[in-house]
Design a protein around this nucleic acid. Structure first.
Lengths: 219, 219
DNA sequence: ACAGTTGATGACACCGTGTGTCATCACTCA
DNA sequence: TGAGTGATGACACACGGTGTCATCAACTGT
């Protein structure tokens, strides 16, 4: 493998994934990764910002994709509806372009390292930020936009997890399963609240939209 | 300030917060913090695991508090209702024990550093994990527990942000405002979906619980 | 064919984080 | 007064991350 062999970045990602799985994330140095890829430590940092970034190659474009999907959703749709709609579109792209086997290996590595989970959450937060921005561009209020964006990001993350875990099912199936759960949870919570017979309202002003507190207050 | 002066940890937290605000997080070294606190770099790491941890002193006990609050909620309540109820209880403790002025200063620092935001998300994730565990202990299914836990964590985070931002309002007010937003968003999204006149259902099995897709499909 | 240019790489030095290890100091208790 | 205990300082070290410059291959124009 000569000095200018092409595909340096790909070699690095493969070497890193292999080594992280073999020895565990903490027992691998950047020098190890670079050596296996036929490069030096310094060159690794020309491709990736740090030791963690090598595991999140496709996460770079995701926020932009999500933002455009949200902006492309029906302008008349409610914020959450627009976001879920957009995630459906995004899911198709993701399932198509992401290698399922490698995604599963990445998940295995990430699940063993708190440091990597921390980084993964940053990627998820970047998606949330993109949704938030797109929603506000659609005219959604700041508070609602922030909330719906984070919920959307959570839903996407859980759906992606389901997709990775099950070899067979498509991405959409997982997405719908999560959204189903979300709808059911909120229906149940709402139902419980509404049925509250003698609910003493909590201190500050609630009761807007005719909602009782979250659950019958205990005493 | 002699070698064995008491309150070393408090001196470190104050020194760190001051320095981070004065020079910016990246322009402060652990040695700087330790020096201002009258200690050495090595001693700093005996009190805090790393350079970031010094900004999250009260986050250590939070997961346990939240877990217990969820377990203490009405066993008959739906998962989300139990969580929101628990967060209401937790909010009271937080607003009481956390110094509002310092919380605002911490927020200012965190908002300037991606590294610190990453760590903050980890704290939030720890809360989500605690909720998740408590919910499953209550008998909630794994998928629903994970989803509701993350949504609850998001709600708590946003409510805490509102509490820090507004000097006057109590924590509960922010919490209720966020929950109101959540209810409204889901009502709106559900409404839109249900009113969809000629909605072509998306590929895989949806329509469970009588719900149409998120929004009228575009072409 | 040849020289200049461009871009990727290696070599090296450097700073800061985080940790292991041991000596040192103050305080406590018998 | 002397042993023990716990917090601290001193020192060394591995590793992450960065700036800088030299080097080498490939491309470009003449």
């Amino acid at each position: 493998m000569a000095r200018w062999d092409p595909g340096a970045q790909e070699r690095l990602t493969e070497a890193a994934l292999d080594l992280y799985l073999e020895r565990g994330y903490d027992n691998v140095t950047v020098a190890d990764i670079a050596e296996r890829a036929g490069l030096t430590r310094r060159s690794y940092f020309r491709y990736f910002a740090d030791k963690r970034e090598v595991l999140f190659p496709s996460a770079e474009r995701l926020p932009e994709i999500v933002r455009e999907a949200v902006l492309a959703a029906d302008p008349a749709a409610a914020p959450l509806a627009a976001v879920l709609d957009a995630l459906h579109q995004v899911g198709a792209q993701v399932a198509e372009h992401v290698d399922h086997a490698n995604a599963a290996r990445r998940r295995a590595v990430i699940d063993t390292s708190a440091e990597l989970q921390e980084r993964e959450r940053s990627k998820s937060a970047a998606v949330a930020a993109a949704i938030d921005e797109a929603l506000r561009q659609r005219g959604t209020g700041p508070g609602t936009a922030a909330l719906v964006a984070q919920v959307g990001s959570v839903v996407l993350g859980l759906a992606f997890r389901r997709w990775v875990k099950s070899d067979a099912a498509g991405f959409s199936a997982g997405l719908y399963a999560v959204v189903d759960d979300l709808r059911a949870s909120l229906d149940d919570a709402g139902t419980t609240a509404h049925l509250d017979p003698a609910g003493t309202p909590p201190p500050e002003g609630l009761q807007r939209r005719g909602c009782a507190p979250f659950s019958p207050p205990r005493e």
